[in-house]
Nucleic acid binder design. Structure first.
Lengths: 209, 209
DNA sequence: CATTGTTTGTAACTAATGTTACAGAGTGTG
DNA sequence: CACACTCTGTAACATTAGTTACAAACAATG
């Protein structure tokens, strides 16, 4: 695990000195597939780095409708939690482990110092901000410019990409929640995708062809 | 104008020394209402601060469909353009002056130095990032969880807020573009809002009651 | 004031998505 | 294997939003 963390950080261009400090002040956190990691309304004091696994970041409205914003994959971090903490604001997300996952949690109070002292860390944080921002934009694009059929197909392809697997193990109901639509609609469109030879359907499993 | 800039920056907690430097290396740029300031595909080398007026930031797809992402009001900046520049990426936005506006343009190459040396500037930039991010989330909320009727009404109220005026001077066609729908639909819903006593309609003008 | 172009109102229709209801297939457990 | 539970397929229908078409009102201009 320590090795994994080290290689992720060096890859991001962070110098040994800082890597060691991150190892020293942070701590690991594991989550099993399906586990809720952050609930809306909570205030976290740590910035997580995903060492292994996959997290989904979901937005909720007051009626508990949901929409998937983006995934956090191995090696990625969510600098957004920074501001959420700096300004003492509540968290507006729901973060779930989509797979068995391992995170490295860094206490927020080191952030400002590191951003000041390490150009590489500055780059790392800004780059994370930017990546999340771009992903939000892509989400907006999908919702705004695509119809449900295309959105669903894109969703499946994105999930394939994120899990590096051609098989998706989810129920139609779960997919419907990520897209803020109903199970019936998802079943209908999945069947259409199957008829067009793009996927194969089984119980709790979708194979992408 | 210099006075305006100074008061905006001090208000943001930036010390005199840096304010003076920003005044020295930046330059003003004016735009008349309706003028296109940034087109998709361009790469800007400056971070703009809005001194006066109002800018709209719009996302476009390849078929020139559009959706309003957020406004930039007087005193605000768009730190996003930072990363757009750092990573040499193309701009994916269309920025338009919604009013006669004045901007202060800061060359990007000073950013990293200032972020390193001035805690206040660091805060300013991060806070800008966060504000934009929150606005994107609100946009996603609207698109995802509201029907068009509510979205339209919220749009009018937001515009009122941004312009500090109860009168909106736009055609139905322009509103339709910001919401990525058609003029006919907007006219239909506006008429409904009027019948319900929430607004008053005239040619090129909507009054919010 | 005649002409032209823009804006708005409205009807009639189409398409996309959401909802309700129900049946049958698959899975896990005692 | 009997039972309970979850998941999927499908039909019928309701609602929302998009499209086409046309007329009338308004504004700008020579």
């Amino acid at each position: 695990m320590q090795e994994n963390l080290r290689s992720i950080l060096s890859e991001a261009g962070i110098e040994d000195e800082l890597v060691q400090e991150i190892q020293k002040v942070g701590f690991p956190k594991t989550a099993r597939s399906g586990e809720l990691i952050i609930t809306p309304g909570s205030t976290s004091m740590h910035m997580p780095i995903v060492l292994e696994g996959l997290l989904s970041v979901v937005r909720q409205d007051e009626k508990a409708n949901e929409i998937l914003l983006y995934y956090l994959e191995g090696g990625e971090t969510c600098a957004m939690s920074l501001a959420c903490c700096i300004e003492g604001k509540r968290n507006d997300f729901k973060v779930t482990a989509e797979d068995n996952s391992v995170l490295w949690m860094i206490p927020m109070n080191y952030m400002d110092e590191w951003i000041q002292n390490y150009r590489s860390f500055r780059k790392y944080v800004f780059s994370s901000y930017q990546t999340r921002f771009d992903e939000l934009l892509e989400t907006i694009d999908s919702i705004t410019f695509l119809n449900l059929y295309d959105r669903l197909y894109k969703y499946l392809l994105d999930k394939k990409q994120a899990t590096k697997s051609y098989e998706i193990h989810m129920s139609h109901e779960q997919i419907a929640q990520h897209l803020n639509t109903s199970r019936v609609v998802v079943s209908r469109l999945l069947k259409q995708l199957e008829n067009e030879g793009k996927i194969e359907l089984e119980r709790n499993r979708i194979s992408i062809l």
